[in-house]
């Protein structure tokens, strides 16, 4: 952030200094500095997002009625969407016990993504690898343990040797299946969310920086005006990306869990 502030202060004389990327994503500790429990801006955003998600759901369902009020109708729409469009559509009726888990993932990721465009916060906590990696690890545990519970120890055998393949092909298929199921799945889950939010944060920083540096700089004003016109579009785009990434994370969790419910045959 210091890069952005520096560009603001020196905007006219020293235009458009793009700060080093790490400076946009690393913040100094605020509380408990030097201990393993140091809290910086990212941690505060995560904690606030968690509290906000809990508060929203608790408020919406504080006294459930048969004829829902506004808040309850909105929250029911969200839960119903995840239940019908994600859980049941992907996993069938067996997906119903997973609806709370999927709703939690969706809400947590979505609210963390939205902080990318919230004024004065302007930082998506999901653009630090720790949080996507934690979610991916959680989903990995969910589908791995589901597979072990539903299929027993044969789960790993079923993954490694999909049926209906002539046996010489197993030399090729088995390593691919093992690597893609147990290593590539969580890796892509985490990297997808992380990279989307990092890219969004950098793009928004650059567009805001351009506005700051060029809008009142005299000769560069047209560039600043173009950036000013593009900024709302980009903010809208990032809002869409935030919802879409939360949706994709949730639906992939459902697909992975659904794939370990039954052996392929």
């Amino acid at each position: 952030m210091t890069g952005v502030l520096a560009a603001t202060e020196h905007g006219i004389n020293d235009p458009f200094v793009v700060p080093p990327v790490l400076e946009l994503f690393e913040f100094p500790a605020i509380f408990f500095e030097g201990t393993p429990f140091a809290i910086n801006r990212t941690v505060l955003i995560v904690l606030f997002a968690t509290l906000l998600a809990m508060a929203l759901m608790a408020f919406a369902f504080r006294s459930p009625k048969v004829v829902p009020g506004k808040a309850q109708a909105a929250a029911e729409g969200l839960v119903g969407f995840i239940r019908e469009q994600i859980a049941v559509q992907v996993m069938g009726p067996e997906g119903l016990p997973w609806v709370p888990f999927l709703t939690t993932i969706f809400l947590f990721v979505w609210i963390n993504n939205i902080f990318e465009v919230v004024p004065l916060v302007n930082f998506p906590a999901t653009s630090r690898m720790a949080i996507p990696a934690f979610l991916a690890g959680l989903i990995w545990l969910a589908f791995f343990i589901t597979g072990l519970v539903k299929q027993g120890p044969r789960y790993i055998w079923n993954v490694a040797f999909p049926p209906g393949v002539p046996w010489p092909i197993y030399i090729l298929v088995t390593p691919i299946e093992l690597v893609s199921t147990f290593i590539v799945r969580p890796l892509t889950l985490a990297v997808r969310l992380f990279a989307n939010l990092v890219a969004g944060h950098i793009i928004l920083t650059i567009i805001f920086l351009t506005i700051q540096a060029f809008l009142f700089s005299g000769s560069g004003t047209p560039v600043g005006l173009v950036a000013l016109a593009a900024a709302p579009l980009l903010i809208g785009f990032e809002l869409v990306v935030g919802v879409l990434q939360a949706y994709i994370m949730t639906i992939l969790a459902a697909v992975y869990i659904g794939s370990s419910l039954h052996a392929e045959h």
Partner: peptide, 9 residues
């Protein structure tokens, strides 16, 4: 649904 899955991959 399938389209979004494919896009994600």
């Amino acid at each position: 649904t399938t389209m979004f899955l494919g896009i994600a991959f």
